[in-house]
Simulated assay, not measured.
Amino acid sequence: MSRIAVIDADLIGRKKHRFPNLACMKLSGYHKRCEDEVVLKTDYEGLEDFDKVYLSKVFTDTFIPEGILEKTNVSYGGTGFFYDKAPKLPEEVEHHMPDYHLYDEWVQGKLDAGAKRNEYRFYLDYSIGFLTRGCFRKCQFCVNRNYDRVCIHSPLPEFMDPEQKKICLLDDNFLGHPEWMRMLKELKDTGKPFQFRQGLDERLLDEEKCRELFSCRYDDVYTFAFDDIKDAEMIEKRLILARNYTDAPLRFYCFCGFDRGGVWGEEFWADDIFGLFKRIEILMKYKCLPYVMRFERYAESPFRGMYISIARWANQPGLFKKKSLREFAELNGIGSACYRYMDNFERQYPQAAYFYDLKYEAVSRGGERI
Rank of each mutant, 00 (worst) to 15 (best):
E267V: 12
E267L: 08
E267A: 09
F268S: 03
F268K: 00
W269D: 01
D271L: 06
D272F: 00
D272K: 03
I273S: 00
I273R: 05
F274P: 07
G275R: 05
L276R: 04
L276T: 06
L276C: 15
F277Y: 10
K278V: 13
K278W: 11
R279V: 10
R279K: 15
I280R: 06
I282D: 12
I282G: 11
K285A: 12
K285Y: 13
Y286F: 11
Y286A: 14
K287R: 15
C288R: 11
L289C: 07
L289F: 03
P290E: 13
Y291N: 15
Y291I: 13
Y291P: 15
Y291C: 14
Y291S: 13
V292G: 03
M293H: 10
F295E: 03
F295R: 00
F295A: 00
E296I: 09
E296S: 13
R297T: 09
Y298C: 10
Y298E: 08
A299V: 11
A299P: 13
E300D: 14
E300N: 14
S301W: 02
S301C: 06
S301D: 00
F303P: 06
R304E: 04
G305D: 03
M306A: 14
M306L: 05
M306E: 11
M306P: 08
Y307V: 01
Y307C: 04
Y307N: 10
Y307F: 04
S309C: 05
S309A: 06
S309K: 01
S309P: 12
S309G: 11
I310F: 02
I310S: 01
A311K: 08
R312Q: 12
R312E: 10
W313S: 09
W313F: 07
W313D: 09
W313Q: 04
A314E: 06
A314T: 01
A314Y: 00
N315K: 06
N315Q: 04
Q316G: 15
Q316N: 15
Q316V: 13
P317G: 02
G318P: 10
L319I: 04
L319E: 10
F320W: 02
K321E: 14
K322S: 07
K322E: 07
K322F: 13
K322P: 11
K323L: 14
K323A: 15
K323N: 14
R326V: 03
